[in-house]
Design a protein around this nucleic acid. Structure first.
Lengths: 157, 157
DNA sequence: TTGAATGCAAACGCTTTGCACTCGG
DNA sequence: CCGAGTGCAAAGCGTTTGCATTCAA
């Protein structure tokens, strides 16, 4: 039950194992000092395509007995998002969710668990699309499909 | 520069003038005691298709010199949304926005002003759509087009 | 060494809640 | 009249900020 799946449009990464080193490199490349805390945050979020809240990441780090402050997690996530290493999404009413997949894509939103799941951008195409307001361009097109458990209906035919 | 436009799929309302009375009736029909404050909130939000935050509605009521508490505006909006008279949308990172159009539709989101604008559901159609997860059904399909002012690019051709 | 990053707690902005007072039917 | 609704202020929750301390280079 690993959470590895590789359907996302990512450049084929090298191996997964020396993840920490790749993270350190990426942070460097983006002008960020790879401190212990930053590496941990990035590592947890970017290990596989997922959607996590700041609190979840905080909990995950502390679960391993390591020290981090809430502020650092929030600040780190903000910086990672600013530098384009992760993406902050605003589809949850209560909190920000960070998405490790930065390429454009869409989401299923399970209304019962609150969880998000990626939809491959190739699985959605438009046959009709609105004219954009004068002088504007689309920075992003986001489709959210809010899901509910099908009510155990009467099976007719 | 009135904000009236009627492209929305609403049942053709009677006149617009005796709005207050219609509001009072609607509140009654939904089991809500039509107090002065509730009528004002509903009136402001439901006068025309718009998107407003609780603070904007509060300000609008007070602008007319009337008394309302912030709590009442929030509570009223919550109740109106629960009863299906308005719709609460969660596409803005900082706050809830209330939408007077309850029929399913989509949104333009102006990233510079933060404003939302409705997209007629007929202006969007899918030619490819993902399979929903087993046992789930789509409660809503929301498309958000995040807009940015086109940068005054070089006019080629 | 030394500026950048961290930790802690206080501050913040939006929203909800507790409780006494008031109002609508 | 009497319970539903209101107002106010305090509490809650997610997130940010100020400042002294610590750390990576």
């Amino acid at each position: 039950m690993t959470s590895e799946y590789s359907a996302q449009p990512q450049p084929q990464l090298a191996e997964q194992a020396p993840a920490r080193e790749r993270i350190v490199q990426q942070l460097h490349l983006h002008g960020l000092k790879p401190t212990h805390q930053r590496v941990r945050v990035a590592e947890i979020l970017m290990a596989a395509p997922t959607h996590m809240t700041a609190e979840q990441i905080l909990a995950e780090i502390r679960r391993g007995g390591e020290r981090v402050s809430k502020a650092t997690v929030y600040n780190t996530l903000k910086v990672l998002a600013q530098r384009g290493l992760v993406r902050q999404i605003h589809l949850d009413p209560e909190r920000s969710v960070y998405d490790s997949t930065i390429a454009p894509h869409h989401h299923f939103h399970d209304l019962e668990t609150g969880e998000f799941q990626d939809i491959d951008p190739n699985d959605i195409a438009f046959s009709r699309f609105p004219t954009l307001p004068e002088g504007m361009e689309a920075e992003a097109i986001e489709v959210v499909i809010r899901l509910r458990r099908k009510r155990p209906a009467t099976e007719s035919a």
